[in-house]
């Protein structure tokens, strides 16, 4: 059964009097537990597609159904709740909140869910232990290395046990070794949680971690293949 079903997705931008077609007639089904890598050169539409899947942007045309919800029909506040309930995000630049400690960054999505403090603490402690940062809870993210920051971001993305994890160029700001370590962690944690992982990259070595590779070019899906 597909967790994500996209039909005839189009995305157009208007940039300085010119219409830019970022996505054209994209149709895609992604199942539960898949590890999908969106590949393609810069400007191919990877991030735009990821944004639409992540409900942080709207398609100009087409229909997207995620976890049974027609996301285009949801109001802005229901969409916010939906994102919090269903998704976790990992960004290229980590996007940790600098005024919050490591613990508080990971705790933030749980605060939005209004979980009681004991449950929040239990989940955050468990997640920090899994990403190997149990001792770093009180530390400011600004005092962490790039790899550590990305691990905090992974903990934050997974702490709500989302059905879908979206990662946009998760290793682009990291060196090769750290990048691989971070991806291994993501894949491992994702596998244990049974959630669907979709990540975008233009680095073929990163794509090795996917079970399926969707290649985009000029806003169109040009290849979609399962990998071992």
């Amino acid at each position: 059964m597909a967790l994500i079903s996209m039909r005839n997705i189009e995305k157009r931008y208007r940039l300085e009097m010119a219409d830019i077609q970022a996505l054209a007639d994209v149709s895609l089904d992604i199942g539960i537990g898949e590890r999908v890598c969106l590949m393609g050169p810069s400007g191919s539409g990877k991030s735009t597609l990821l944004n639409i899947i992540g409900c942080v942007d709207k398609a100009s045309a087409g229909r997207t159904i995620i976890d049974g919800e027609d996301t285009d029909s949801l109001s802005d506040s229901r969409l916010s709740d939906f994102r919090n309930r269903t998704m976790g995000f990992v960004f290229q630049s980590f996007n940790l909140i600098p005024v919050l400690s490591v613990f508080e960054n990971v705790e933030y999505p749980l605060l939005l869910r209004r979980l009681d403090s004991r449950e929040r603490r239990r989940r955050v402690d468990e997640m920090l232990l899994k990403v190997g940062l149990a001792e770093y809870g009180r530390r400011s993210p600004e005092r962490l290395s790039g790899g550590q920051r990305q691990r905090v971001a992974i903990a934050r993305a997974l702490v709500t046990a989302p059905r879908l994890v979206i990662a946009d160029e998760p290793t682009a700001s990291l060196d090769h070794t750290t990048g691989r370590a971070v991806l291994e962690l993501m894949v491992e944690m994702n596998g244990k949680a049974g959630s669907t992982l979709i990540f975008a990259t233009h680095d073929p070595t990163v794509a090795e971690f996917a079970s399926r590779i969707v290649t985009l070019s000029d806003g169109r899906v040009v290849a979609d293949r399962e990998v071992a």
């Binding site: 802005d76 506040s77 916010s80 919090n84 995000f89 960004f91 996007n95």
Partner: peptide, 15 residues
């Protein structure tokens, strides 16, 4: 702006 985007991606409402 990136902070606002991140907060909203995590589920923070506009209000």
């Amino acid at each position: 702006m990136r902070e606002w985007g991140t907060l909203r991606a995590m589920g923070t409402r506009r209000r």
